[in-house]
Design a protein around this nucleic acid. Structure first.
Length: 417
DNA sequence: CGTGTCTGCCCC
DNA sequence: ATTCTGC
DNA sequence: GCAGAATGGGCAGACACG
């Protein structure tokens, strides 16, 4: 099936608005179009159905294996009480740092297909699913899960960088052997032709338990029911200690809603109130900046390179392009241009792909938050920050007061549990 | 044949 | 992924 | 509150170059 470029993003909204108007419908019509899009995300097809059979035709569009469902996503919120206040009763699940997989199983057609979070078909990536027929109690099933690499000896999950090596065109079988994946199933979207997306969470979970038989490769994900913020916090701490990315909290009665809607699904990774999953923020020095595109080109900076002192050199460990307001970008450019250098300063160690458009003297200190310190093939320091963002400018600090290499190594050790 | 660089309706 | 911004 | 548009690290692949 060809899903056109209009699939996600820019104009299905416009198209559906036009379609609603054309068919003299109002808001309810628009809602019906959106609901259909969730189970058949192809605006071209939907337009055709409406054209040929009118809005009534939409009722005949059903969930089916081989057509991806627009996946539900998590809102972010790092306050336990607020989460519970917004949801009431909720389920708490582990957050896995892997890759999202929507599994479509059709016994009669002998078909097993998978889709990514962006509705990309990914079937060739997961040869281990070919035995689904033994593991699934049903003939036509759509499952939602997270696939994570795991260590066969210890059973522990592996870092994202290892899991994602599976995203390849060649050598999939070899990689599957050396880095097996485990599929943690947390939802079921359809069963034998019947859509379950409008069923409440706890009902879907009942179906899931009946349908998925646990084994080495596929596991019905564990969940904990609660309406107590303290309990949520305890579970979150437990998950972090176990080495998982955090917790996902879902409304107990919630439907399976596409995208981020309301407070149906919420994720929490960091300690309550913290700005990133990494235990500490880092005070780093700006080494240069890039000119930026689109709106950012207007104020002459899109991102800046940060690093710290290691021995006699300055080494980069991240680029930062978020966390600043437009005004802050403008102000920072003016400030940095005062210490622009024509050439790369001699004591800078920065590898090719990260070389900025403009080099600056190592003077400006910024506080940076991140989720993780990872080994890096790109940054000269050999490590990098995952999801770096600016917290604030440290005008009170000079380059000598910046975080030291030793401190970073300590934090890195801690973050590897 | 290796190495470097760049790209992806990429994954996060 | 995170974050900011205009609506 | 929501969608859109900026931006991050890093993987395999494709391609250029020597």
């Amino acid at each position: 099936m060809v899903i056109g470029k209009l699939r996600l993003g820019f104009s299905e909204k416009t198209i559906f608005d036009a379609l609603s108007q054309m068919t003299s419908g109002g808001k309810s019509l628009r809602k019906e179009l959106d609901n259909t899009f969730q189970i058949y995300p192809d605006p071209g097809y939907i337009t055709q159905v409406v054209k040929e059979r009118g809005m009534a035709g939409l009722k005949n569009v059903r969930v089916k294996t081989g057509v991806p469902v627009v996946p539900a996503l998590c809102q972010r919120l790092n306050n336990y009480r607020e989460i519970v206040d917004k949801m009431g009763e909720a389920a708490v699940e582990r957050k896995y740092d892997g890759t999202r997989v929507q599994i479509h199983f059709n016994r009669l057609k002998n078909e097993i297909r998978t889709y990514t979070r962006n509705l990309e078909e990914s079937s060739p990536m997961f040869p281990e699913l070919f035995q689904m027929n033994k593991w699934i109690m049903g003939d036509e099933v759509i499952l939602d899960c997270e696939a994570v690499g795991y260590d066969k000896k210890t059973g522990k999950v592996l870092p994202f960088q290892i899991t994602i090596t599976r995203k390849r065109k060649h050598g999939v079988a070899e990689t599957a052997k050396s880095i097996p994946l485990r599929f943690f199933v947390f939802d079921i979207l359809s069963l034998n032709g019947r859509s379950l997306i409008e069923e409440p969470y706890f009902e879907r979970r009942k179906f899931l338990t009946k349908v998925v038989k646990k084994n080495e490769t596929i596991v019905p994900d564990e969940y904990f029911k609660t309406d107590d913020p303290v309990e949520v916090q305890k579970l979150h701490d437990k998950f972090l200690k176990e080495g998982f990315e955090g917790a996902v909290i879902k409304m107990w009665n919630g439907e399976y809603l596409p995208g981020r809607q309301g407070w149906n699904w919420v994720k929490i990774k960091e300690a309550e109130g913290a700005s990133g999953k990494l235990s500490d923020t880092l005070d780093l020095v700006i080494l240069g900046y890039n000119l930026g595109k689109g709106k950012r080109a207007g104020f002459g900076m899109g991102a800046f390179l940060v690093g710290l002192r290691r021995g006699e050199s300055w080494v980069s460990i991240a680029k930062v392009g978020t966390g600043l307001t437009d005004e802050e970008f403008k102000g920072l450019k003016i400030k940095l241009d005062k210490s622009k250098t024509k050439e790369k300063p001699k004591d800078y160690l920065v590898s090719g792909s990260l070389v900025p458009d403009v080099w600056v003297e190592p003077l400006v200190v910024v506080e940076i938050a991140a989720d993780e310190i990872t080994k890096s093939p790109n940054h000269a320091g050999g490590i990098a920050l995952r999801f770096p963002r600016l917290i604030k400018f440290r005008e009170d600090k000079g380059p000598k007061d910046a975080t030291t290499w030793k401190e970073v190594e300590e934090i890195a050790k801690l973050s590897l549990n």
